[in-house]
Design a protein around this nucleic acid. Structure first.
Length: 174
DNA sequence: GCCGTCAAGTTGATTA
DNA sequence: TAATCAACTTGACGGC
């Protein structure tokens, strides 16, 4: 299995700590074939699995592919695996996990938008309730202070006029 | 030591 | 029925 991140043989190389760490990150999957086989052997021998870290280059290529298509056909999978020196299974798993992350992110965005929408609806509701209260207050008030009125609209020009009910029919003429 | 991230494993549903 | 998927879980690892 290529790409074990904590191989003691890698960490104990003659390089400085910083460059060793850099190489550990960048070339993690370019382990010589002998080492790879040993790791596979150990894995199936019952030892706990080690965590693979994809290199920046591998992640970049996978991301670019994911932008193009979210689901791979077997040929694309093989091609990517060859290109990245990974197993087709690893490419498949990466795409499965990537789709899961993508869906999770989308759900989070939808949740955020729904909350925003709920907030604006709440605010709108609050304003409307306030308006209703004001109108009720006006209705309950003394008639001499605010004479009864009605809004009428001319059917021809759609002009809205405020006409007082206590005036005669002539007053309502437009 | 806890927590988040991510590769990989498991399981059940679907489809050609 | 095998292949593939989504959903969920596990385990390693790094950062704080």
């Amino acid at each position: 299995m290529p790409g074990f991140s904590s191989s003691p043989s890698l960490q104990s190389s003659g390089q400085s700590d910083v460059s060793a760490m850099k190489d550990l990150e960048l070339d993690i999957n370019q382990i010589p074939s002998g080492v790879e086989e040993e790791c596979v052997e150990k894995e199936f021998g019952g030892l706990p699995r080690k965590k693979l870290r994809l290199t920046k280059e591998q992640s970049h290529v996978l991301e670019q592919s994911f932008k193009q298509y979210h689901i791979l056909n077997p040929k694309q999978k093989e091609g990517l695996a060859d290109q990245l020196k990974l197993k087709p299974r690893q490419v498949e798993v990466w795409f499965q996990n990537r789709r899961a992350r993508s869906k999770l992110k989308q759900t989070e965005m939808e949740c955020k938008n729904l909350k925003k929408w709920f907030g604006s609806l709440n605010e709108q509701n609050r304003k409307l309730k306030k308006e209703v209260e004001e109108l009720r207050g006006m209705k309950a008030g003394p008639p001499q202070q605010l004479p009864a009125a009605t809004l009428t609209m001319c059917p021809r020009c759609q002009h809205v006029t405020n006409t007082f009910l206590d005036k005669g029919p002539a007053a309502r003429k437009h």
